[in-house]
Amino acid sequence: MNDSIYLSIQNSPRFKELVSKRERFAWILSAIMLGLYAAFILLIAYGPQILGAKISATSTITWGMPIGVGLIVSAFVLTAIYVRRANGEFDDLNNAILKEAQQ
């Protein structure tokens, strides 16, 4: 692999587009995940009674249950959102960049 290909990719507008789109998307999703987790930890430390509150007068289930399970599900959903866009839109863009560079 010679340096000129790397250089031409680095300077191509499509590459810049891919990098900025993907980075922004990845950081936004990371921030959401970390934010949710941090909020959960703060809730445990400062508001355990909120997690321990029953979801209705007749139920034993507490708010902590759907919140906890929701966090697990959100980890999977965020992953799925990223993989969907990365394996589709980003990979198409990536393939176009590689094709262009190798011509």
Partner: peptide, 24 residues
Amino acid sequence: GYDGLIYSIGFLVGWPIILFLIAE
């Protein structure tokens, strides 16, 4: 009881971050 769930969530949330930031 509930503490077990807190513990497992801590183990899980690292995975999305690994994907977003380092896997590729």
